[in-house]
């Protein structure tokens, strides 16, 4: 198990290899479909300090607002990452994002981007919402809540010992590619029988 403290350097991220299990602590930001579309159309400067040497979490949480106005995460597992495939490599390079956390893995364009700009794809367990919400120890801020709504807003969160697995690294390794190649073989055999 490898502990990753955010912010994290490009060099430290490049040391990670496919299959490494990690525990993440520090400040990161959630961004999913509408957020990625918004970034791609606006490239806002205010995101630079939020994202640089940090991580994007593909997550649309269930949140609770307390009487003093503060927020906490009630349920916060990963959402499917492949929908951000058109945007992610460019977003990671522009904002120097060191990892995206999500589920299901991403495609060739992102894999190439990870090698180029120095990043990894971290797979969290889908449906682990109650447990992963416990790893979110504080909600620091929320951006564009009115415009994007609760699931799609940028939530700036502090996590502690957030568990994930490196399934795509900066050396071209992708667990998703390897598993798919094997299951393609089996499927072909089953279908031709």
């Amino acid at each position: 198990m490898i502990n990753l403290q955010l912010p994290i350097s490009e060099a430290a991220i490049r040391e990670l290899k496919m299959g490494d299990e990690v525990l993440i602590s520090g400040l990161m930001v959630t961004a999913r479909d509408a957020a990625h579309k918004y970034i791609h159309e606006n490239w806002p400067d205010w995101l630079k300090p939020v994202m640089e040497d940090s991580m994007i979490y593909h997550c649309g949480p269930v949140v609770k607002q307390h009487e003093d106005g503060s927020w906490s995460f009630v349920a916060a597992g990963p959402t499917t990452s492949i929908r951000e495939e058109p945007y992610e490599a460019a977003v990671m390079e522009y904002y120097k994002v060191r990892a995206v956390i999500g589920k299901g893995g991403m495609g060739a364009k992102t894999l190439e981007g990870l090698a180029k700009s120095g990043g990894v794809y971290l797979h969290a367990i889908g449906g682990l919402a109650a447990s992963l919400a416990k790893s979110v120890v504080k909600v620091h801020d929320v951006y564009m809540l009115d415009e994007l709504g609760v699931p799609e807003a940028f939530w700036h969160i502090e996590v502690k010992d957030f568990p994930a697995v490196v399934t795509m690294d900066s050396h071209g390794g992708s667990l998703h590619k390897a598993i798919k190649a094997k299951s393609d073989e089996v499927a072909k055999k089953l279908i031709s029988e």
Partner: peptide, 9 residues
């Protein structure tokens, strides 16, 4: 804890 199993309800 009576919280959602998955955040996507």
């Amino acid at each position: 804890e009576s919280t959602p199993i998955c955040q996507d309800t």
